[in-house]
Amino acid sequence: MTDAAHPVTGLDEVVHQRVRLGILTVTHEARRVEFGYLRTQLELTAGNLSKHLSVLEEAGLIEVEKGYEGRRGRTWITLTDSGAAALNEEIGRLKQLIARVETSGS
């Protein structure tokens, strides 16, 4: 072991989850995304997606806004500044992890 902490120790349990990372990635790219779009792209059921969104919203990483377009209800998800920072941090840690694995393997 080196003096620096292993990247795994810094992984955020809320963010370090495949679906939640997907939600943050899509929202980061689109700035604002509709529930139905996320469900289709991540191939999830509405219930499953809702659960993940609740976790992210409670952690303050996303904001959920419900409204209507005509008679149709629509839910929009926006990434917060903390969410963007958490995503960047997670990706940085994943890259560190890859670098660490490659270094130890060579």
Binding site: H16, R18, V19, G22, H28, Q41, L42, L44, I91, L94
Partner: peptide, 26 residues
């Protein structure tokens, strides 16, 4: 992307590649 959690031994390289593909699709 699938609905599975990331197993401990999941390949971070593959995860990053999936996220990049998802961002590209958006």
């Amino acid at each position: 992307m699938t609905a599975n959690s990331i197993p401990a031994a999941d390949d971070p390289r593959r995860l990053l590649s999936d996220l990049r593909a998802l961002a590209h699709r958006v």
